[in-house]
């Protein structure tokens, strides 16, 4: 199973600022190993961020995103103590969800 994400959600003015670090190999499918064989593509395809039952950010990714990706975005309507959950799904069907509480700015 994949390692946990690191999520920070913090009030910034009238918005919530979210920073997410994900642990993922993000193999492009272009790289060769030491024996010259292609390393199969393996990357996060979909990212969804939910807050209070609604999706506040979603993204579709490809193999151009670097290993251990970092996402940084803001959304409106969050309050201290409420939870933000982040889910990613990769091209192998692996999935991981982590969440964090919004903290004061």
């Amino acid at each position: 199973m994949a390692d946990p994400m690191r999520i920070r959600a913090q009030i910034a003015g009238d918005k919530v600022e979210v920073r997410v670090l994900m642990s993922h190999e993000m193999e492009t499918g272009q790289r060769r190993d030491n024996n010259g064989n292609i390393v199969p593509a393996w990357f996060i395809q979909n990212v969804t961020v939910n807050h209070g039952g609604r999706t506040v950010m979603s993204a579709q990714w490809g193999p151009a995103v670097a290993k251990n990706p970092f996402v940084h975005f803001r959304f409106s309507g969050g309050k201290v103590g409420e939870r933000v959950s982040v889910t990613w799904t990769d091209n192998r069907g692996d999935k991981r969800t982590d969440e964090a509480a919004i903290i004061a700015g």
Partner: peptide, 12 residues
């Protein structure tokens, strides 16, 4: 679906 401002993406 409301999409927040995706300010900066990742280090590529």
């Amino acid at each position: 679906m409301r999409i927040g401002t995706c300010v900066a993406a990742m280090a590529i």
